[in-house]
Amino acid sequence: MPVFSYLAYPEKGAKEQLLKDLSALPYCEATPAENEDILILLTDTPDEVIEKALQKQLNALKSLQSLGMTFGHTGA
Rank of each mutant, 00 (worst) to 15 (best):
residue 14 A to V: 04
residue 44 D to T: 08
residue 61 L to F: 02
residue 43 T to E: 13
residue 41 L to T: 02
residue 17 Q to L: 15
residue 62 K to A: 06
residue 30 A to T: 08
residue 31 T to Y: 15
residue 10 P to E: 03
residue 76 A to Y: 14
residue 54 L to T: 05
residue 20 K to L: 13
residue 23 S to A: 10
residue 54 L to H: 10
residue 23 S to E: 06
residue 52 K to L: 04
residue 23 S to P: 04
residue 8 A to L: 01
residue 36 E to F: 11
residue 15 K to S: 10
residue 45 T to K: 08
residue 58 L to A: 06
residue 7 L to N: 09
residue 22 L to F: 11
residue 56 K to H: 04
residue 52 K to D: 06
residue 37 D to Y: 04
residue 14 A to F: 12
residue 56 K to F: 00
residue 27 Y to C: 02
residue 23 S to I: 01
residue 50 I to E: 13
residue 19 L to H: 07
residue 6 Y to H: 02
residue 17 Q to R: 15
residue 37 D to W: 04
residue 46 P to E: 07
residue 66 S to T: 08
residue 17 Q to M: 14
residue 32 P to F: 12
residue 33 A to R: 06
residue 60 A to S: 12
residue 13 G to A: 02
residue 75 G to K: 07
residue 68 G to R: 05
residue 20 K to S: 15
residue 35 N to T: 01
residue 55 Q to F: 10
residue 2 P to T: 07
residue 55 Q to A: 13
residue 31 T to I: 14
residue 55 Q to E: 15
residue 64 L to R: 04
residue 11 E to W: 02
residue 24 A to N: 05
residue 28 C to H: 07
residue 14 A to K: 15
residue 63 S to F: 08
residue 6 Y to Q: 00
residue 37 D to C: 06
residue 7 L to S: 12
residue 33 A to E: 07
residue 32 P to R: 15
residue 29 E to D: 05
residue 66 S to F: 07
residue 71 F to T: 04
residue 37 D to L: 06
residue 60 A to L: 03
residue 29 E to V: 00
residue 73 H to T: 03
residue 21 D to S: 07
residue 28 C to N: 10
residue 70 T to D: 08
residue 54 L to N: 11
residue 19 L to P: 01
residue 76 A to C: 15
residue 72 G to L: 07
residue 16 E to D: 13
residue 68 G to T: 04
residue 59 N to G: 15
residue 28 C to W: 05
residue 5 S to H: 01
residue 13 G to L: 02
residue 56 K to W: 00
residue 16 E to Y: 05
residue 72 G to Y: 07
residue 67 L to N: 03
residue 51 E to D: 09
residue 27 Y to L: 03
residue 55 Q to C: 09
residue 51 E to I: 00
residue 28 C to L: 09
residue 68 G to V: 02
residue 56 K to C: 01
residue 49 V to K: 12
residue 7 L to V: 12
residue 51 E to Y: 05
residue 40 I to E: 03
residue 51 E to Q: 09
residue 17 Q to W: 11
residue 12 K to W: 12
residue 60 A to Q: 09
residue 50 I to R: 14
residue 68 G to Y: 02
residue 44 D to V: 07
residue 34 E to A: 08
residue 31 T to A: 14
residue 4 F to G: 01
residue 45 T to R: 08
residue 21 D to M: 05
residue 34 E to W: 01
residue 11 E to P: 03
residue 44 D to P: 05
residue 34 E to M: 06
